[in-house]
Design a binder for these strands. Structure first.
Length: 494
RNA sequence: GGGCCCGUAGCUCAGCCCGGUAGAGCAGGCGGCUCUUAACCGCAAGAUCAGGGGUUCGAAUCCCCUCGGGCCCGCCA
């Protein structure tokens, strides 16, 4: 693939830029005031019969030229803007300066133009703008992707997302929906009196999850730093500090390979709620997902999975006990009494390869992943995990060997993870030590300052975390996380 | 990191099995057309066939390596 700079197509378009300048037309002007969305013009066309032109004031629209259909001394242009698009109808006897023939010669698909004229409906019934004045707003010197098939090359669609966006209404709709869904999530927490906060991305030791961190370095501090892998510990410090309902929605970084459901950097929301337990949080999450499901159906009426979301997410969500579900599905009784070696053997049989030295919880997670997860297509809360799987949750008040935790699953994907938060400083210290000793989790560094914070007293609280990308995937049925991240990580260009 | 598959014009694709020196549509150029909508009609142009090496009289095509991508596995609560 040669550099577009060298292409003769670009050369030809550069010559058009020169020609425009020679005629005194600025190819890159500063603004286009008083423009309205294309939908405003389309609305004004509704009352018109085919062939009629509106009598009222002229309308001004702006956007990108997608196609040009020239008919000798008239032409139709398809103009696209964020609201949608509109057909422009150019006729030599309607168009003011500059001359029609000059305009068409220097206009290409991909150019951004402004148009002023009368709303009209063609004889074939297409809402249009009968153009009186056409203004070049940004001459495109690189040609846009093919008008009908668009950009299919998966690599180009990701590396040059702007090309994917400008050539694909579906892509534009998807990312618009993502933004509005994030807005909805913020509204939800704001309405429940949670404060949105920001905590550091850079720190000495990344903690709060078992994942390989990215490293970087501060020249000023002369220290090695790590990028955060979770939001948990700083937010809990805020509970200690007296903030009773906090959440953060931000990027976290895990130094791992990318696949259909994992990206090395992704957006995570974590919320902590003082004086409540995981049952309260379960109700909150159910309420949130019910709301998001309704919202996504409105936002993406063209996407079947989005339209089905309100049917799929219906109250009450199913609740299953982690151990009961696993024992039932696998047909293996007494899992909690089994030792590490026995669990490892079972995990092997189930086809999972886990480092021998992993803590018992790791094998249980693998078994769960294998036997239970795929069957969780409807929204289901999996509750009360074995203690060995979860170092930061409070032990269960009535089930020995368990913690008060839930994970929400839907369409086989984990959508949320929450627990009654551990606030006993000594037990927390002990759990960290155990994790560290168990190996297989060598990235678990002990955050001493966090233990110290707990010593001052953290109110009982529930906390939840969920990946924004996966939530959006589950709601829209997206096949890959790359489809829901505007700029997924890619290798630098060769 | 391992396995399989893919990379041909700016874009979308054919040609590759079975070796004979590259073909179309869109976009662009020139000409025609004042209601089209993947507009249409005519003419001309556009390609280090991802890059490098090998086999061969001859390689887009067969083999090897490199780069980039996709899928699966591993890693990843």
């Amino acid at each position: 693939m040669s550099d577009p700079e060298e292409s003769h197509l670009v050369q030809e378009r550069r010559q058009k830029v020169d020609r425009l300048r020679d005629r005194g037309v600025e190819p890159y002007p500063w603004s286009f005031p008083d423009r309205v969305p294309s939908t405003t013009v389309v609305d004004r066309c509704r009352s018109l019969t085919p062939g009629a032109t509106a009598s009222g004031p002229d309308a001004r629209v702006a956007g990108r030229i997608r196609t040009i259909r020239q008919h000798g001394r008239s032409a139709f242009l398809d103009l696209e803007d964020q609201a949608g698009g509109l057909q422009l109808f150019l006729r030599v006897d309607e168009l003011e300066e500059p001359a029609y023939s000059e305009w068409l010669a220097d206009l290409d698909p991909g150019d951004i133009v402004g148009a002023e004229g009368s709303p009209m409906v063609t004889r074939r019934g297409e809402p249009s703008l009968l153009v009186r004045q056409l203004t070049m707003l940004a001459k495109a010197i690189a040609p846009p992707p093919e008008k009908f098939h668009g950009l299919r090359d998966a690599e180009l669609r990701i590396r040059r997302r702007y090309l994917d966006l400008l050539s694909s209404p579906e892509t534009r709709a998807r990312f618009r929906a993502r933004s509005l869904l994030v807005r909805e999530i913020r509204h939800f927490f704001d309405e429940h009196d949670f404060l949105e906060v920001e905590t550091p991305i850079l720190g000495a030791v990344a903690s709060g999850a078992a994942a390989e961190p990215f490293g970087t370095r501060s020249t000023y501090l002369d220290e090695d730093l790590q990028l955060r892998i979770s939001l948990e510990l700083p937010l809990k410090r805020l509970l200690v500090g007296g903030m009773e309902r906090v959440y953060e929605l931000g990027r976290i970084f895990r130094n791992e390979d990318l696949d259909v459901t994992h990206s090395p950097e992704f957006s995570m929301l974590e919320a902590y709620w003082a004086y409540t337990d995981y049952t309260d949080m379960r109700r909150l999450m159910e309420a949130m997902y019910l709301r998001l499901a309704r919202r996504i159906a409105d936002l993406l009426p063209e996407v079947p999975a989005a339209v089905e979301a309100p049917t799929l997410f219906q109250s009450p969500f199913a609740v299953v006990d982690f151990v009961e579900a696993l024992e039932e599905r696998s047909g293996i009784p007494g899992l909690l009494d089994k030792g590490r070696d026995e669990l490892r053997a079972l995990a092997r049989t189930a086809g999972a390869t886990v480092p021998d030295a992993s803590p018992p919880g790791k094998f249980l997670d693998k078994l769960f992943e294998h036997y239970v997860e795929p069957s969780l297509t409807r929204p289901t809360f999996v509750v009360d995990h074995p203690l060995s799987t979860t170092p930061l949750a409070k032990h269960h008040r009535s089930k020995p060997g368990r913690v008060e935790r839930f994970e929400l699953y839907c369409r086989g994907v984990e959508l949320a993870n929450a627990y009654s938060e551990l606030n006993d400083p000594d037990e927390q210290a002990r759990r960290f030590e155990e994790q560290l000793a168990a190996k297989g989790t060598d990235h678990y560094a002990i955050d001493r300052d966090f233990i110290e914070a707990l010593q001052y007293g953290m109110p009982p609280a529930s906390g939840v975390g969920f990946g924004i990308d996966r939530a959006f995937m589950a709601l829209t049925g997206a096949a890959s996380i790359k489809e829901v991240i505007l700029f997924p990580p890619v290798r630098s260009r060769p």
